[in-house]
């Protein structure tokens, strides 16, 4: 089995446009930026949340607070397959009560990551509302979860994989759709 790049879903300019639109949607829906806070899911979501904070700041001249959640300890598959011993920290340096939280992830797939992130958030306080922003929605949900702000929707199958490369991780910004191709002998 090997992964083959099938298609570049978005390049750096497209990602920048998507994020600008999403920032505008966030501000519009929340009637400004004074009641919101952005929380990124480590690690891809956190980089995007950082960028959205800057964009919201440039639109509204108000910088909403930024937080990070690490969902490793909240996964429903912690011990299924190989354990993931690498645990990052959750940092929510603001009170959650009464705040509209915009949860940010890079790819929305089964919804299980978001479920875990919601559990983590609730352990810190009671936000007024939690909205979900994702750069890529690739469908195939396994839980009743939907995004409020979507960069791009991509139709995928179980054999596909979506990779989001970001410049914060030393890559050129791009979203790539890959397909798992099984060898003939398999």
């Amino acid at each position: 089995m090997q992964l083959v790049d099938r298609q570049e879903v978005a390049d750096s300019a497209a990602i920048a446009r998507m994020l600008r639109r999403m920032a505008n949607e966030i501000v519009e829906r929340n009637q400004g930026a004074s009641s919101i806070a952005l929380v990124g899911i480590r690690t891809g979501g956190l980089h995007l949340a950082e960028r959205l904070v800057e964009l919201v700041h440039s639109i509204e001249n108000h910088r909403p607070p930024l937080g990070a959640v690490d969902i490793t300890l909240y996964r429903d598959d912690v011990f299924v397959g190989l354990p993931r011993p690498q645990v990052g920290t959750t940092e929510l340096p603001f009170r959650l009560a009464g705040v509209n939280i915009v949860l940010v992830d890079d790819v929305l797939f089964t919804g299980r990551t978001v479920r875990a992130a919601l559990d983590a958030l609730m352990d810190y306080g009671r936000p007024r509302q939690v909205q979900l922003a994702t750069l890529v929605d690739r469908g195939m949900r396994e839980l009743p979860i939907a995004a409020d702000y979507i960069g791009v929707t991509v139709d995928t199958t179980a054999n596909d994989s979506i990779r989001v490369f970001l410049k914060e991780q030393g890559e050129e910004d791009r979203v790539v759709l890959r397909t798992r191709r099984s060898d003939e002998s398999n």
Binding site: D70, L73, Y74, V78, Q86, G88, E91, D119, D123, Y124
Partner: peptide, 20 residues
């Protein structure tokens, strides 16, 4: 030790528990 650094914060939360 790295994992300890990550987990230490749980002990300072209001809800000092993770479901792991």
């Amino acid at each position: 030790l790295d994992l300890t650094d990550s987990l230490r914060e749980i002990n300072e939360r209001a809800i000092k528990k993770v479901p792991t």
